[in-house]
Amino acid sequence: MNAKLKETILNPIFKGNPITVLVLGICSALAVTVQLKGAFVMGLSVIIVTGLSSFVVSLMRNSIPNRVRIIVQLVVVSLMVIVVDQLLKAFSYSIEKQLSVYVGLIITNCIVMGRIEAFGLANKPIPSLLDGISNGAGYALILLIVAFFRELLGSGTLFGMRVIPESFYAAGYMNNGLVILPPMALILLGCIVWIQRSIQKDLQEK
């Protein structure tokens, strides 16, 4: 695999992570991370939508009239999101109910449009597909990390399975209710950014 393709795939996971570095896709990252299950489904949906949209737009890139560029992109992304939502409603109804509004909001998820504009319009279909998938994966990674802490500390479970043993509760340990509430997700994200920038000094703002 040539070096450029490798970079396309690996970059968005850490160094060019869409959430912590590019600051895209924050909205849903915060809202659906209360439980690992929801974060996982959302992450998977974003991977599929970003990858396929980038791929399709890249196929169309030489034929789209410039004046309607943004609208055509929006239509393609909306199509993907609606199909994913309909599939979820049919095969994963209880999760779809939890994610509800936020699945529709994938359309406005800055990552999708951002990657189409920055990569899909200027590159061949297969690299665009890979770029979309790995950006989605970088996004999913952050989602899973935040959800891991929020579910563990807030409900004592992981993926719905009890992890903190009953004996802890009996001894007086209580679930941290604050972690389940929205503001904590932001603070967790701030800490993740702090850790990442301590490791990668070149990302620090002066």
Binding site: V23, G190, W194, R197, S198, K201, Q204, E205, K206
Partner: peptide, 8 residues
């Protein structure tokens, strides 16, 4: 702190 500046 430097690593926290800006986004963090």
């Amino acid at each position: 702190p430097h690593a926290l500046k800006g986004l963090g």
